[in-house]
Design a protein around this nucleic acid. Sequence first.
DNA 1: TTCTACTCACGAACACCGTTCGCGTCAAGT
DNA 2: ACTTGACGCGAACGGTGTTCGTGAGTAGAA
Lengths: 235, 235
Amino acid sequence: MTAPPPPWRRTPSPRRRAAKQMLSQELIVKTALEILAAEGIDAVSMRRVAQQLETGPASLYAYVANKEELDELLLDAALSEVPCPEPNPQRWTEQVKEQVRHQIRAMVAYPGIAKVAWQTPIPVTPNSLRQGEVMLQLLRAGGLDLQQAMFASDALSTYTKAFAYEASGWTFGDYDPEKMSERERQMADYMRSLPASAFPNLLQAGEFFNADTSQARLEFALEAFVAGLAAMVRK
Amino acid sequence: MTAPPPPWRRTPSPRRRAAKQMLSQELIVKTALEILAAEGIDAVSMRRVAQQLETGPASLYAYVANKEELDELLLDAALSEVPCPEPNPQRWTEQVKEQVRHQIRAMVAYPGIAKVAWQTPIPVTPNSLRQGEVMLQLLRAGGLDLQQAMFASDALSTYTKAFAYEASGWTFGDYDPEKMSERERQMADYMRSLPASAFPNLLQAGEFFNADTSQARLEFALEAFVAGLAAMVRK
DNA sequence: TTCTACTCACGAACACCGTTCGCGTCAAGT
DNA sequence: ACTTGACGCGAACGGTGTTCGTGAGTAGAA
């Protein structure tokens, strides 16, 4: 047995340096997910995750190539919670809308994760691909040909990501109420400063545009788009 | 006239320190726009703009509150190039689609500027408001009521921003071809590694999804959505 | 003309970020 | 018991937005 470390020299590390490997990609992702769910995507930095793990940022790079890869792992984890229904041609329009709602719910649960879906040109992680395939199945069951289904799926996923990102911003602290109300006042002032008739519609419509109507706006967009798809099929 | 600076003491600054004020918000925005058009939004940093102006980053804060405000000024400048057609009820669907195309064109001309439109909850700059009003006018001319027009306009602007951002990425250097092709290979490998029938649709549909089809995908989305709107009116 | 007052310019610093290099420590193999 | 090699990670690099304090220069007053 080697001599024990001299008592005056503090033990190698405040925390126990566990036997072999204490870190793992899984643990890193799990920790990052917790920060993500609690504080939003902007709080997830390599340093922050490392800190939570009581280590330095450099340690993470043994298990994760870079921040981008970590981001994609987080997105994939978030999407893993979305169900995959069996296509039912009788009610395909409802199924499509329901799937979009599920995807949005999953993303909003991890505020800002939609931003990641954004920065990555074509998501190639398992659950992203799975969601793509599911949507294609639902659309084809509705009678769209392959190209139509592909284009429709692309449009839907684009809108889904966009909506989820925006919704995250509204519900999360991305912009605080203080600046928001100041902004509203600023807008009202500006519009009133112009000839009253410059923005007749916007002035009236302002009331429809707030956090409370976001669900209704989603439903409206889905309804219109899916109706347009259905018309293509019938033709 | 005061005595000229002694010749041995080098002139106060390498560059001439012009009489009163050499900087202005206008000049800053103009400079930033040039960088933006040439190198994309990520190249536009306070330091970079200041460097182009041969000064330090701190100097900009006299004319611009912060980076966010500069970003909004850039977005507004980009949107200023979008025309505002007179509503014509006979061909409102075509006008709506055309307006979206114009907005996208304007944004793609300044690569990545769409990201800014994104980070700002409700854009309150003059040209943003103007575009909102124009879209509302076109939709109302088509027969939609105020709430329908508002929701439709919201959906369209969301999709417009999303598409413009994605298009910027494709056409611009955001992700280089090297990583892209490696990514495609990686995806193909992964999909083939699963039971052949796991992604039957995605496997076939891959061919439709590339930079060349982006225009067609835009037209498809517009067509479906606007058709859905038209159906609401007729009913 | 001289002195003061005030505005604008901006160098330096702060607190973050992602990422890399290389050293020290530990555990297992010989 | 000694060597070897992998792992952990402190420190540093170059980037970001932003702030503070200082100094330079002009304009106005005395």
